[in-house]
Design a protein around this nucleic acid. Structure first.
Lengths: 116, 116
DNA sequence: TCCATTGGTATATAAAAAGATACTTTGTAT
DNA sequence: ATACAAAGTATCTTTTTATATACCAATGGA
């Protein structure tokens, strides 16, 4: 999925943004973390279809992009908290518009199915 | 990539939206078609890194989701125009916010590289 | 006559993403 | 002594994506 060149044309920023938030579960993760800091297993509970491996991977990628922060508490059993960074919070309007459109889209699709 | 259930929790509309526009090249395609109707090879020219097969595939998927319309002119050589549907145009604010954030993000990343 | 053009399709292959499953650590509770 | 908790890793397999390449039709131009 990685591009090498984003200076191709003015549409590329769109791809750049999608590359950062377009991972299979990143949208939902960001949505949840924008409303509150959460622990690893709390995230698992709100999205039970995601495997642990996938969740870990997506979280690490978001962390590498500086969108979320990972805080480990040296306890046993382990406690790890995930939260949005200040930079990550700049995604608020993006996630919000995706959620708005997505809601309407789900209704639209349900309608199309009903009309069938 | 297909989900089976979107009623899992309130973050799912975000995933629903990303599933529709998150294909590898869909963001750029939509960005371009939102500004003007374009022919197949015009699209190829503005995104030369995309293979013909991929472009065709992404266009067909967008068409199946009723976001774009495909109009074939019975001429030789063939002429096929792609344009946004009315429904597709409802994506305007989404693509716009992606583009805004993406632009800032590209600057941010360039800055991080410069500071290294 | 041969070549280029547009908008594709078909086939095979390679690379990347995702999934399933088992295992780890160290303390506390049973 | 055993089991469980949280937050992961490590492997292996399957599925999905993407690439490369060749091919097609009908027409206009050199």
């Amino acid at each position: 999925m990685a591009h090498t060149n984003y200076n191709c044309n003015p549409g590329c920023p769109v791809e750049a943004a999608l590359e950062v938030i377009g991972g299979k579960w990143k949208g939902v993760i960001l949505y949840h973390l924008l409303s509150e800091t959460m622990r690893f297993n709390e995230l698992r509970r709100v999205m039970p279809e995601v495997t642990q491996r996938m969740l870990t991977k997506q979280l690490r990628e978001l962390e590498a992009d500086n969108l979320i922060a990972r805080k480990v508490y040296p306890e046993v059993p382990p406690k790890v908290e995930y939260s949005m960074t200040e930079y990550g919070k700049t995604l608020t309007p993006v996630i919000h518009s995706l959620q708005q459109w997505g809601s309407r889209h789900l209704e639209e699709v349900a309608q199309r199915v009903a009309d069938r």
